[in-house]
Design a protein around this nucleic acid. Structure first.
Length: 640
RNA sequence: GCCCGCGUAGCUCAAUUGGCGGAGCACAUCAUUCGUAAUGAUGAGGUUGUCGGUUCGACUCCGAUCGCGGGCUCCA
């Protein structure tokens, strides 16, 4: 007999080798109906899993996150089966679940098209109707490898070679079997609704030197309603796309004549940037920062000293030769701050020095990586370099974390992920500096994060070449994370440039440098902002805050005077002088996502009022001009 | 950079199997002077991304190239 402990604490006795599915059935037929898998002792197992010893068990059902994940994983197998049927000889890569769906990689000579996806979907539905049993079996590792080679499944063979266990498990459904840890749904008929979404190239195991496979992305749900909801969500996200909104709202553009990844800011986009930058400077001054300006290019030797030429060259624009000297467009601002630091001796009494710089850098991003404002080749970092003593380091990092949090929340970002980016194992040639120095730097970051009680993920191999970092990722409309703020501890550049401070003992000590941004880069930040608000910006940084709409030409004078009055109060206001009906003007203003539309006609002229229509609430009513000004000035101050 | 797809008027899109490139919006002119999401008429606009090839004839087929998109890789 075995004792099974259920989630509610109930204990039940069963015969040895009873399966998870049978336990579910013994509890209730409805549970059995909805059961997909089990969780025995915290490990996900199939319904066919035989229970051999006392265990705590929960049944994974359709309505749960784990259930959906199993469904998607099984759907990816189903897809692989369909692809294998339609394209004999297809070599299979991997087919995992991902957030909101799944994918499977295939190596086939035929290039998959959208129509192929529909055909594969049809074949998948056929397999669902066949409702074949999905069965798990195990093979000794060596035999499994031999089998895979015999079947021409080289990728699978390679995967098994990397598995350390003596036996590996497979799942058989009809004529199709696939290497998999499981668990899986027990019949193909359990798959309900799914959709194949796109095809894309993907390197085998993510390595550029490996062959490129064809990846099919798809998603699956337990109900049509859920799938529909998900597809609607994708459509909504498309509407929030900053590239579309940027065009519609006339914020920025890119030009073939200008070059890929080089942003042209239009007046309204530039206005947003200017507001953010002004806010940024003021906030920095308040927190004891000064700001710098530095050149866009510098002689190549500077970059050799800094290490960029050796460790960062592939991201740098090629040298420009002037008067027999080679110059490089700066990919980073740090060496410039160092040069300024070196212009005089610094006492420990002067530290920390916090030097901010809205520095425009140029990096050669591979053409395929470019993406609207979110990944460009020329961008302005809201950079700063802090020079401090080792003792001050922790406090400085905490100060930066707090500033970054303040900045993000000021712009409405409360959902972001924090990563601690450290060196990858066994690729030391990618980084400069000694182990002890790296250890020290990493520890400082870790301690600061812990002191702030922040949750973070440790990311191996994500460090910069000169030091580890705290990276904060904000999300776009599709939930893709983009690195924004970053805090990097650097003991290496100070050493390379031999920058020191004079301590109380009168001796020179190496200074510690912190590189950081609190927004990331203006381009990316504005891109994320657009998606976050879908172009519907809060009043305080909306490029146009209000537009005056005169009913007829007879009200133009009043409208113009009103505009002057509002401009004088530093409000961003337009006047719609076009010869159009008021309905038309309102429509234009609404589509332009202008926070306030101020309608003025006979009544308003007579009483010195405005009829206010807000984007948030629609018709707000008629207010004396000064009252309206008061209201919006409060709203701007509160950054609502 | 790699795989796949896409480039037609400022924008969003049409154009049988290769046979004289159209529409809506925006813009200009004229009329209209209007109260909370589109007034009407007229007009202007293009070497179909670029270069080359096939053809009597190319937006359409082929090649190259530039740019964009979805991913992979890479990163603020």
């Amino acid at each position: 007999m075995v004792k099974v402990t259920l989630p509610d604490g109930a204990e039940r006795q069963y015969n040895d080798n009873i399966t998870v599915g049978e336990v579910a059935r013994s509890i209730g037929s409805r549970l059995a109906e909805k059961a997909l898998a089990g969780k025995a002792g915290g490990v996900l197992v199939d319904l066919s899993y035989p229970i051999k010893e006392d265990v705590s068990l929960s049944i994974v059902t359709e309505g749960t996150d784990e259930g959906v994940e199993i469904l998607r994983h099984s759907t990816s197998h189903l897809m692989a089966q369909a692809v294998s049927r339609l394209f004999p000889g297809a070599k299979l890569g991997i087919g995992p679940t991902i957030e909101n769906g799944f994918y499977y990689d295939f190596d086939l000579s035929h290039s998959l098209t959208e129509e192929d996806l529909r055909k594969i979907e049809e074949e998948m539905k056929k397999i669902i109707r066949e409702d074949v049993v999905v069965e798990r079996y195990e093979l000794p590792r060596d035999i499994a490898i031999k089998n895979m080679y015999a079947q021409g499944q080289l990728y699978k063979a390679e995967l098994i070679k990397d598995i350390e266990d003596d036996t590996v498990s497979f799942y058989q459904q009809g004529e199709f079997a696939d290497l998999c840890r499981g668990p899986h749904i027990h019949r193909t008929g359990k798959v309900k609704v799914f959709r194949l979404l796109s095809v894309a190239g993907a390197y085998w195991r993510g390595k550029e030197t490996n062959p490129m496979l064809q990846r099919i992305y798809g998603t699956a749900f337990f109900s049509q309603a859920e799938l529909d909801k998900h597809l609607t969500l994708l459509e909504e996200a498309e509407k929030r796309d900053h590239r579309k909104i940027g065009k519609d709202l006339d914020l920025f553009s890119f030009h073939e004549e200008g070059g890929p990844g080089l942003t042209f800011w239009h007046p309204k986009g530039a206005r947003i940037r200017n507001i953010i930058e002004t806010f940024w400077r003021e906030e920095h001054f308040k927190r004891g920062y000064d700001i710098l300006y530095s050149p866009h290019i510098a002689k190549i030797n500077l970059w050799k000293t800094s290490g960029h030429w050796n460790f960062y060259r592939e991201s740098m624009y090629s040298p420009i030769t002037v008067d027999n000297h080679e110059y490089i467009l700066k990919p980073m601002n740090c060496p410039f701050a160092v040069l300024i630091y070196k212009t005089k001796l610094h006492s420990y009494r002067d530290l920390p020095l916090r030097w901010g710089e809205l520095g425009t850098v140029y990096r050669y991003e591979r053409s395929g990586a470019l993406h609207g404002l979110l990944r460009v080749r020329g961008f302005t970092q809201d950079d700063a370099h802090i020079f401090c003593t080792p003792e001050q380091l922790e406090e400085e990092i905490i100060g930066v974390i707090e500033l970054a949090q303040f900045m993000l929340s000021s712009f409405g970002f409360n959902d972001y992920e924090i990563e601690l980016s450290v060196r990858g194992k066994g690729e030391k040639e990618k980084y400069i500096g000694r182990d002890t120095v790296w250890q020290h730097a990493e520890n400082a970051l870790k301690v600061a994060l812990d002191r702030k009680g922040l949750h973070y993920t440790r990311m191996e191999g994500e460090a910069k070449f000169y030091g580890p970092a705290i990276d904060i990722k904000v999300k776009d409309a599709l939930g893709r994370g983009w690195q924004g703020p970053t805090i990097q501890v650097d003991f290496n550049l100070p050493e390379r440039f031999e920058i020191t401070y004079v301590g109380s003992d009168g001796a020179h000590h190496p200074v510690v440098m912190v590189h950081r941004t609190v927004l990331g880069a203006m381009e990316r930040f504005v891109g994320c902002l657009i998606e976050h608000y879908a172009g519907d910006f809060p009043l305080w940084f909306a490029p146009i805050q209000m537009r005056i709409l005169p009913i007829t030409d007879a009200h133009l004078d009043y409208a113009k005077k009103l505009q002057q009055k509002l401009l004088a109060r530093n409000l961003r206001v337009e006047c719609d002088t076009a010869n159009n009906k008021i309905n038309y003007k309102i429509r234009e203003g609404t589509l332009g996502k202008i926070p306030y539309l101020l309608i003025v006609g006979d009544k308003e002229v007579e009483n010195n009022t405005v009829s206010v229509r807000s984007r948030k609430k629609g018709v707000e009513g008629v207010f004396p001009v000064d009252d309206f000004i008061n209201t919006v000035e409060c709203e701007i101050r509160d950054k609502k």
